[in-house]
């Protein structure tokens, strides 16, 4: 009744349809153009996603454990079952201690990296992976309350992980290097050749716009050039895996294996300061070597 009074019946559907389409397009163009501050609804949803991940993972682990127990124990004699239960309990304890031990090593490496890095950093734990198969992102348990904001670089002990895409109060979404939307200004450490490292999903990353005359070899290290304004100079990003030169192409086809395996990331550091700290003018690449050596001789 109200709608009929406000809008002429003849044009009502066309007006409503135009309103929704124009609003959707405006939202899309506004958000595609630049990295905007997420709204309160979006922030609340991001908080919910991390809570949801925790809720989903709990029964999933329970189901997996129950299935394993069933497979191991079915059809066995009572004594044997008791012994196996004892054994399973002991194994679970060992796994728990080993997990704690490995976590200790990882955190030791991270701490070493944090201490040697000339920037102010914030340690974070990975609490979720993006549910979509086409976007390569992770969710970490640090947000605006910890000084984390969109655009900040995220690193791990082996090298660059990605950058913060959006941050809510207590969690943030990280765009991984391997996401196809990720582009980083880089430099090949050995030949000092500049290029753009673009994500290539399961294929790792591709180093683009490198001239055919540039000397690039398999095994060369790719580091951040410091020119993009996001990543400080000297952060390791990956190693050249394959190099291809074709007569018809202007540039070389270079595939790069990222330093950090996105599937294995558990803890990260977010570089929260824009300027280098007073202790060093720029990042030393041996910082990562020192961090890696902190747990030298220990098996992962």
């Amino acid at each position: 009744m109200g709608q009929e009074m406000l809008l002429p019946k003849k044009y009502r559907i066309a007006i409503i349809a135009s309103f929704f389409i124009i609003t959707a397009l405006l939202m899309l163009f506004f958000n595609l153009g630049h990295m905007s501050e997420p709204g309160i609804l979006r922030k609340m949803s991001l908080e919910m996603v991390s809570s949801l991940e925790t809720v989903i993972n709990a029964p999933l682990t329970g189901i997996k454990d129950a299935w394993k127990r069933y497979i191991f124990l079915v059809g066995l004699e009572a004594e044997n079952r008791l012994l196996k239960e004892k054994n399973a309990r002991a194994a679970a304890e060992i796994i728990k201690y080993r997990e704690g031990y490995l976590e200790g090593i990882r955190l030791q490496k991270l701490l070493k990296l944090q201490e040697t890095m000339p920037f102010s950093t914030q340690a974070a734990r990975v609490v979720g992976r993006n549910p979509s198969p086409i976007f390569k992102m992770i969710i970490i348990n640090r947000g605006e309350a910890d000084g984390v904001r969109a655009g900040l670089p995220v690193v791990a002990t082996a090298g660059v992980v990605g950058r913060i895409l959006e941050a809510s109060w207590h969690v943030s979404r990280v765009l991984l290097l391997t996401d196809e939307n990720s582009n980083v200004d880089v430099m090949v450490q050995e030949s000092r050749v500049l290029g753009i490292l673009q994500g290539a999903a399961s294929a790792g990353c591709n180093l683009k716009y490198v001239s055919k005359t540039a000397a690039i070899a398999v095994g060369d290290t790719v580091i951040s050039s410091g020119m993009g304004g996001i990543f400080p100079k000297g952060l390791p990003l990956g190693v050249v895996k394959t190099v291809g030169k074709k007569e018809a192409d202007l540039f070389q086809k270079i595939n790069v294996a990222p330093s950090v395996d996105p599937a294995m990331i558990e803890e990260v550091l977010v570089i929260v300061s824009d300027q280098p700290a007073a202790t060093g003018a720029c990042l030393r690449t041996d910082t990562y070597r020192q961090a890696a050596q902190a747990g030298k001789g220990e098996k992962r």
Binding site: I21, A24, L28, F30, N31, L32, L46, V49, N130, P131
Partner: peptide, 22 residues
């Protein structure tokens, strides 16, 4: 309904707001 479901899907997928709305 389409607008609201699209908006929440954008939030959950991490897609730019408006992509699924549109």
């Amino acid at each position: 309904t389409g607008f609201i479901l699209g908006f929440f899907l954008d939030c959950f997928m991490g897609a730019p707001s408006g992509l699924f709305v549109f």
